[in-house]
Design a protein around this nucleic acid. Sequence first.
DNA 1: ACTTGGATACTTGTATACTAGTATGCCTCT
DNA 2: AGAGGCATACTAGTATACAAGTATCCAAGT
Lengths: 233, 233
Amino acid sequence: MPLATAELRLHRRAPIGRELHGMLRRQILRGVLRPGESIPETTLAERAGVSRTPVREVLRRLADEGFVTIIPQVGTYVAPIRLAAVYDSQFIRETLECRTIRLAAENLTEPDAAVLRANLAAQQASLEAGESDAFFDQDDALHACFVRIAGRPAIWQVIQGVKSQLDRVRYLSLQSGDWPPVLVEEHATLVGHVLAGDAERAEAAMRAHLRTVFATIERLSRTNADFFETPAP
Amino acid sequence: MPLATAELRLHRRAPIGRELHGMLRRQILRGVLRPGESIPETTLAERAGVSRTPVREVLRRLADEGFVTIIPQVGTYVAPIRLAAVYDSQFIRETLECRTIRLAAENLTEPDAAVLRANLAAQQASLEAGESDAFFDQDDALHACFVRIAGRPAIWQVIQGVKSQLDRVRYLSLQSGDWPPVLVEEHATLVGHVLAGDAERAEAAMRAHLRTVFATIERLSRTNADFFETPAP
DNA sequence: ACTTGGATACTTGTATACTAGTATGCCTCT
DNA sequence: AGAGGCATACTAGTATACAAGTATCCAAGT
């Protein structure tokens, strides 16, 4: 028997210019690259010290994710935030996460509980230290944790893919915002209901939590109008 | 005033080798290209009469969609159907569509009703004519229609992206299967509840409908074992 | 003063050449 | 005969060269 081609698969040889993707995505998310800004392939290529080929592949993927707009013989631009896409993202995320947190509340085990508590503590620390970037990541981590506890870890991949547009709004609001304390409280409420195994309340709290964005979207679309797509006349 | 750069945007100049993507996707879906089969970039390129560059971009996207597996310096292969991915797809699809059909039942207008009835009639025709490929498309069209009626047309894009793996199973079952009559009946039930504006029953029927795949997955994973990933030992 | 025509610079799309890593088959050595 | 090492062929990754379309600017004509 031929050893079944070894399931070790440390095939991890050359993880491509995947870093480029993360870098650009982060820069767009954080507004370093502003909507409407032109980002030619050649510029990005020489800036990163690579050729156009890998840059192109990264840009294609970013276009699929809605971060850039590629116009065939014209140019590549940072995409504006489309309000319609934000609302769609919110709808999908709410639908999926409200269902998964129910499962999480029912499937909780003790080690998971510890992770949740640790995450909350870390959020509190970030809040007091004023580190909004860290909080941004911990927020994601908590939600990912719920999905994992629910026994559907792969679903988080989908949610992450969908909430791209939401993340841009979220980052803007964290920057210009005074509401992190509220978020930490809501997270604490979520964790509390999950720890108590109360699926019903957990779902309701999640729905309310995810809908807090609505309050800020309108404000942000005026405060940072240059980030948003100008609605059709 | 500069005419606002004209919103006509017939920018539709060169829709790339997008056809290639559709062609490969269809061939994998229908089993023309079988799981495990090697599909080198060069082969695909010369077969399509183009260069490797556009082929590569198509393959990258297919890899993102889970249709092919790219191993860096080794080769590109048609991906097997991963049962875990199928179950995840089902979960997501059920979650999203159960919610949207509720909205559809509440938002229905008369023109939409006509479209639904027409779709059902077309399905019946395909069934009697034994055209499984046409039925496959009409099935999709009906579900897309529900999502559109719900007022969230963009959500269908997400569902379509997620259900790739499910589609492969669905196609297999349509080929080897005797159950289209059941599906048409279920579709009729769905449409009936939506037409009646009964959100509760519509959702329940949708859940039951989407879960019919479970019945066939196990059978298919034995009948067509070569299409599925061999579970870890 | 305004429009219109065309030359030019710049963009992405595509093709080709080169690099590097992997698998395979053959040969040699034990 | 079997096991191990080595040369070769093939793969995707990357870089570069070429093609095709677009926007811009300037000049000429009305």
